[in-house]
Design a protein around this nucleic acid. Sequence first.
DNA 1: AAATGTGGCAACCGCCTGCTA
DNA 2: TTAGCAGGCGGTTGCCACATT
Length: 333
Amino acid sequence: MGRSPCCDKNGLKKGPWTPEEDNKLIQYIQLHGPGNWRTLPKNAGLQRCGKSCRLRWTNYLRPDIKRGRFSFDEEESIIQLHSVLGNKWSAIAARLPGRTDNEIKNYWNTHIRKRLLRNGIDPVTHSPRLDLLDLSSLLNSTQFNLSSLLGLQALVNPEVFRLAATLLASQNESTPELLLQKYQENNQMFNSQLQNQEGSELLLQKLQQNQILNSQLQNQTQFFQFQNQIQEIPNFTTQNVPGSSSLSQPMQLGHVEESYLMNSQMLPPQNYGYCNSDASDNSNFQSLNNNSSNQNFSLDSVLSTPTEDEKESYCSNLMKFEIPESLNFDDFM
DNA sequence: AAATGTGGCAACCGCCTGCTA
DNA sequence: TTAGCAGGCGGTTGCCACATT
């Protein structure tokens, strides 16, 4: 036989909690700890379901909860984490001390998601919504090869292969958390590379760095999804592929994965790099990098604008960022 | 000043997983 | 082994406050 029922739902109160109920719950937990949620309401003198008590405590009454507006760093973290973890609100909340999954979920749905949509970014894939603007076909066009114009010849980055090899070397560790960790490590490394550059570097070079980093995240995420798909194929290993190496051999990629990465690296970066208003105005890149709270020069750091107005409009300069007003495209044609 | 619209958020619902008897 | 519950989680709802007409 299983356990006895959690609680008799008949006659239990629902809806908003009163201050009296809150006090009862707080006082009881302060004395006895959260413990068994099933028996807690009765012992605390509450006409509530244990589940309701747990929710009230974890989402609102817990003393370590941070109230108030999300800081900019928190918002940036949420977007970054969401790009890797998806709607795993509890996993995201675990990385944001003092914030609950419910709070983060609400904030995402009411603020971030709407803003991304308004700016033409798919909040699920974190890529530009190509149904609104087919940037990839535009950029792949032989007549209008913006990547070539910007000198983006180095899209195949060895660090991506290093990451992929690490992931392949340990299938059990190929979790979103590991991916995020590797991504952050890569980010830091590229940040230091970026910061070591001398002041004579042109803005386009910074843009190039940004786009490479952005494409890295895109490909890391895509690669992880790809790897999951492979693992779902019965009896599939890279050993099935002629000329490929074993998954157990670090630093060597299977043919399929390598091809996948090569192909995906050839795609233009479909990400927020196109929307970086920072580069279009007074070039806040340097100040951005000097800010210790914004060490990650990353895909989502395009939101790293200090004011709400700038954040609201960070993507409205969609094409301005890439194309200086003084640039005459007829000269390139 | 009243009616209506909109956004934010606390709370609920229902499903899933792991545990227990 | 298995039925059934607790706890956890993500999605959704509904209330309230504020803005707009």
